[in-house]
């Protein structure tokens, strides 16, 4: 078996992640570097019908130049700013068409995004808008649930962790699969190489 981080390993994880997330009705895009990741994010937003876009404050999005690329494309953007009162933040999340997050980890086996809210990343950025776009450095892929929990658990885990696997779904009415019941109906992961 290859050690973690070899490129062979990485490609296998990307393939498994892509298959699993697509099976869960999510979308996957791949970018060779950070800047290309920002450009693909713009495409994802446009496909979704444009802004407003709410972004978490995260070095990955800065490296990708996400806000600048979106602004250059004429898309209204705002950041989740921890200093603001909760109601303002909530309004921004409710008004946004697209919420952009940076997952802490991604689980290849199940196509799962692991979101850990922080000062600049509220609990509902991915959840309240109808579209969720996640920018994921491929280096953050782990093989399976056990590997993810081993990194998150222990005796003092974060106050909240959300595993997100595809769009919000229900089959409660006549067993018909319907997406976007309380959370987003569209989830796209942009996998970006060359970032940690």
């Amino acid at each position: 078996m290859n050690g973690p981080g070899t490129s062979l390993d990485r490609e296998g994880l990307v393939r498994r992640f892509t298959t699993a997330l697509e099976a869960a009705a999510g979308g996957v895009r791949r970018a060779p570097d950070a800047v290309a990741g920002g450009q693909i994010l713009v495409e994802v937003v446009k496909t979704a019908g444009g802004g407003p876009v709410l972004l978490v404050r995260d070095p990955v999005l800065e490296a990708a130049g996400a806000a600048e690329a979106l602004a250059a494309a004429g898309v209204e953007t705002s950041f989740w700013e921890p200093g603001q009162p909760p109601n303002r933040l909530r309004q921004a999340a409710t008004r946004a068409r697209v919420g952009v997050t940076v997952p802490r980890l991604a689980i290849a086996d199940t196509g799962t995004l692991v979101l850990v809210p922080a000062a600049g990343a509220g609990r509902t950025v991915d959840l309240l808008p109808p579209v969720h776009a996640a920018v994921v450095p491929t280096a953050r892929l782990v093989p399976d649930l056990s590997a993810a929990l081993a990194r998150l658990g222990g005796s003092v885990p974060p106050s909240t962790v959300a595993l997100v696997t595809g769009p919000s779904r229900t089959a409660d009415i006549e067993l018909q699969l319907t997406l976007g019941v309380h959370g987003p109906g569209t989830v796209v992961a942009v996998l970006v190489d060359g970032l940690e």
Binding site: A119, L145, S159
Partner: peptide
């Protein structure tokens, strides 16, 4: 029959100092 449901939440206490919501 799902490998994973759409959402699994892990919650440890209320929001902590420095967190903007929860």
């Amino acid at each position: 029959g799902q490998k994973m449901t759409s959402y699994v939440s892990f919650i440890t206490g209320p929001r902590r100092a420095g967190e903007a919501d929860g």
